[in-house]
Design a protein around this nucleic acid. Structure first.
Length: 269
DNA sequence: GTACGGCCCTGTTAGC
DNA sequence: TGCTAACAGGGCCGTA
């Protein structure tokens, strides 16, 4: 499930392969989630950027192609073959004048593609309201604490909303709470705990990027390679196992429909 | 404006 | 062995 580190890994791989190329042909699955892909035909790819979990392709003519990988999305540059277009999980493709083909495979179809005037994100609510990048100086403990104070929701739920900060998904949220020694079921954050959580988020995401993303089942990068960060996880999915820090058996509960793991000793209520 | 439930999806796994 | 149900979950949308 691609979160910020996985999307950034893919962005870095795609950038040298597609920037400068013109899109000469394109197609997509019939779903309206993917049909905007074809709107990019005729444009040149000027840059590949990332905001949170969204990949933004700056196109010539002030256009923008936006791809969200959802749960199982994969982007890659491959050879152009007729058979490849028959793949059952292919949701969109763009043929490049360089000879290659940018492909988007997505088993569960949770991904989405948008083609807009550059910067016009009004039709993409989460992107339009996206919080700062985790390393943005604007993302501080004070900022996070103020956000939490305005709501009665679980802090974890707020993080997953992408509004206080961009790019956090379930895996890195659990890791960040563990690193910060904060119970994920809290609804309140004082200044010190908020500061710790900010640092926990950055530490968890830095690890993810450094190790090329986390592969639990589906995720592979644009070279088809699995990430290695799953070997670095201390918390996510480790319920029933001893805590790496104190040996207490990790627990699991569901918070707002998201499976959540924590250490009852290191992360007390 | 905010909260929340339902929905989209399909491969995998557990249970019978 | 084969079938069914549960589960995974990010983001959007409608309703309260």
């Amino acid at each position: 499930m691609p979160e910020l580190p996985e999307v950034e890994t893919i962005r870095r791989q795609l950038e040298p392969r597609v920037v400068g190329a013109e899109i000469v042909d394109a197609g997509s699955h019939w779903s309206a989630k993917f049909t905007p892909a074809a709107g990019a035909v005729g444009a040149e790819i000027m840059a590949v950027r990332r905001r949170g979990k969204y990949l933004l392709f700056d196109l010539s003519g002030d256009e923008e192609l936006i791809v969200h990988l959802g749960m199982t999305g994969r982007l890659a540059v491959r050879e152009r073959t007729a058979e490849a277009l028959e793949h059952p999980h292919l949701r969109a493709w763009w043929d490049l004048d360089s000879g290659g083909r940018l492909t988007f495979h997505d088993i569960r179809r949770f991904g989405r593609i948008h083609h807009v005037e550059r910067g016009d994100h009004r039709g993409i609510p989460t992107l339009a309201a996206l919080g700062p990048e985790p390393w943005d100086p604007a993302f501080t403990g004070r900022h996070l604490a103020a956000f939490v104070k305005r709501s009665d929701r679980y802090v974890k739920t707020l993080l997953l909303s992408q509004r206080p900060v961009a790019g956090i998904g379930n895996i890195y949220a659990d890791e960040a709470f563990w690193i910060a020694r904060i119970n994920p079921a809290t609804r309140r954050l004082g200044p010190q705990r908020a500061e710790r959580l900010v640092e926990g988020i950055r530490t968890a995401l830095d690890s993810g990027i450094k190790h090329g993303g986390t592969t639990l089942r589906d995720y592979v990068d644009s070279d088809g390679q699995a990430g290695a960060n799953q070997h670095e996880l201390h918390c996510y999915g480790r319920f029933g196992e001893p805590c790496d820090r104190c040996g207490t058996i990790m627990r699991r509960r569901v918070i707002d429909a998201r499976s959540t793991t924590w250490c009852p000793s290191c992360q007390p209520r």
